[in-house]
Amino acid sequence: MLFPAVYVLFFLGTVGILAFARRRYAREVWLAGFFTTLLAVTLVGMPLLPVVDMHKFAQPSEEEETYYEIRMVDASGEELWFDDRSTPPTTGTRTSTVAGQMADEYTDDQRLEMGEFYLENAKEHRQAVESGDRSVTDRLQPPRYVDDRAWTAAELEGYESFEAIRIYERTVIYSDDNTAVESNEERPRVTIDPTDGTVTEHEESR
């Protein structure tokens, strides 16, 4: 709750400053505080509230980290990585979090319900990509990370209709000094097919 509260207070404070903008030193104090906060992040070399997502320094990773990925499964059984533009604002780490819950916590009914959500949205997004149409919300999205990928019409040509989703667990082990990846392994956890109402756990992969 602290993180969103900081941003709410920031905007409320800005509104308050605007209300008293004609008062002596009001704008100067606000600008001084704003730029001092930005400068402090650079000087101390670590994230500080309220700009924890605006800092320029990379976060050190744990020695071992686990992620969860969603992949689309087409009618022939071929897999395609999930383009999370299909389900805004559930993107990036949120997709990994939901996928992990689907693998470890959800009941089969919950898995089927969430699987249908991802499947239907992926189909709609695929149609938009193949037709070349971009939604208004997609056009208003801020720039993505440089290593981000998106489906292309040419890539989708090689796949039949989507029928299911499959959750993978990926474990990444880093070197002691956090400068290299020593191991990057994945294993399938569960396949969810809302079309025929089946949920298959891949216990043999454990």
Score class of each variant (00 low, 15 high):
K123M: 09
L140K: 12
Y118G: 01
Y67E: 04
R170P: 02
I192E: 04
R206C: 02
Y67P: 00
L9E: 01
F57G: 00
M46C: 06
F162V: 02
G158C: 01
E113D: 13
N121P: 03
P47E: 06
D148P: 02
E116Q: 14
R206I: 10
P4G: 10
T179E: 15
G158I: 05
I167K: 03
V146R: 14
G92W: 09
V29R: 06
Y174P: 04
R144E: 13
E204V: 05
E204N: 08
M1E: 10
F82W: 11
R126C: 01
R23M: 07
P143I: 03
L112S: 04
F3V: 12
A32S: 08
Q110P: 02
V15Y: 13
A122M: 04
A164L: 08
F35V: 08
E163R: 15
R139H: 05
D176Q: 14
R85A: 06
Y7V: 11
V136P: 00
T91H: 06
M54T: 01
Q110R: 13
A154D: 15
R85Q: 13
S183N: 05
E62L: 12
V190A: 07
F34G: 00
P60S: 11
D147H: 14
R206Y: 14
V41F: 01
T195K: 13
S161D: 15
A32H: 00
T191G: 02
A122S: 15
E169D: 11
S135G: 12
E63V: 10
I192M: 06
F35R: 00
V15A: 14
V190T: 11
F57R: 09
L140P: 00
R149M: 13
R187N: 01
G132V: 07
L112G: 04
L9S: 11
R111Q: 15
Q110L: 11
Y68C: 02
D104M: 12
A26P: 01
W30I: 00
D147S: 12
